Simulated assay, not measured.
Amino acid sequence: MPGVMTSPILFDYWRSSASYRVRIALNLKGVAYERVSINLAGGAQKEADYRARNPQGLVPMLEMDGLRLTQSLAIIDYLDAAIAEPPLLPADPGERAHVRALALAIACDIHPLNNLRVLKYLKDPLGHEEAERDEWYLHWLREGLAPLEAMAAPHAGRFLFGDSPTLADICLIPQLYNARRFALPLDAYPTLLRADAEATKHPAFAAAHPDNFAP
């Protein structure tokens, strides 16, 4: 029916890091949304109906403003451009580049190597045992978090950059959630832990936590 406004619909999986990022961003921007669970563990992302909506067969996907938006950082960029407050990136070009670099260090350098589909491929057909897959996961976490700590520390405040949450924190918190799932010691990353502690107290982050959506 023309003129009828519909709520944004987020297609996600409760424990997906990329979906977790988008839930945080939607909450920070004050966007109410409907949620459709896509069970990655059960292969729902490969079903024809979902592939017709999203040819990559990945989550998250956000249907909003008549658009089908995919890729978590692209979705967050859209939200930040469409809804001015609160800004998720600094206005200063240099600071903006710095925050983007922190976010990309997580979203491009750590997360893809530890994605569920990568871990599944290590198991079958490559035949790696669970202990080997866990060590793979932990290796790439350590490789990524140590330089991230060094990058963030000089400009961090309560959060990874300054005293307000940014795109960098949106990417960090899901990654640390995963690090704890795999029992990675985090004491070597005090800057990251400080930002994580602040985010834990923030309603937008707390409401997006995977435990709120566990089946």
Rank of each mutant, 00 (worst) to 15 (best):
G43I: 04
R51G: 00
D80S: 00
A74C: 06
M61S: 12
G94W: 14
R51F: 05
T70A: 15
D80L: 02
A52I: 09
L73I: 12
G43T: 03
Y78C: 01
P87I: 01
A91E: 15
L73R: 04
R96M: 00
P87K: 08
D77F: 00
E63Q: 09
D92H: 10
I83D: 01
R53S: 07
A91M: 14
T70F: 14
G42Q: 14
Q56C: 05
P86V: 10
G57H: 05
I83L: 15
P86G: 10
E63N: 02
A52Y: 11
R53C: 02
L62N: 02
G42F: 09
Y78S: 03
D65R: 09
P90T: 09
M61I: 10
Q71H: 14
L89A: 03
P90D: 10
Q71R: 14
P93T: 07
P86I: 11
Y50W: 04
L89D: 08
N54P: 10
P90M: 10
G42V: 01
E85C: 06
D92I: 10
R96A: 05
L69V: 06
L79R: 06
A74I: 04
P93G: 03
L88C: 07
Q45I: 06
L58Q: 07
L89I: 11
R53W: 09
K46A: 13
R68C: 13
L73V: 11
P55R: 00
N54E: 10
Y78W: 11
G94T: 12
D49E: 15
D77M: 03
E95N: 12
R96T: 00
L89G: 05
A52W: 10
A74P: 00
N39E: 13
A41K: 15
E47D: 09
L89V: 11
P60M: 08
N39H: 14
R96F: 06
R68I: 12
R68M: 13
E63G: 03
R51N: 02
I83Y: 15
V59F: 03
L88G: 03
A52T: 13
M61G: 01
L89S: 07
L88E: 02
Y78R: 05
L62Y: 01
D65Y: 04
A48C: 03
G57Y: 04
Q45R: 04
A74R: 06
L73Q: 11
E95D: 14
Y78V: 05
D65W: 07
G94H: 15
N54C: 13
D77N: 11
I76F: 07
L58N: 00
L62W: 02
E95Y: 06
G66V: 09
L88K: 00
A74L: 10
Q45W: 02
Q71M: 11
G66R: 13
P86E: 09
N39Y: 10
D49H: 09
G42W: 07
Y78Q: 03
V59E: 02
P55A: 03
R68Y: 13
P93H: 07
E47H: 09
A82H: 12
R53L: 15
M61T: 14
L69W: 00
G57E: 06
I75P: 04
P55L: 04
R53T: 05
L69F: 04
E63K: 02
I83M: 09
A41N: 13
G43V: 00
M61A: 15
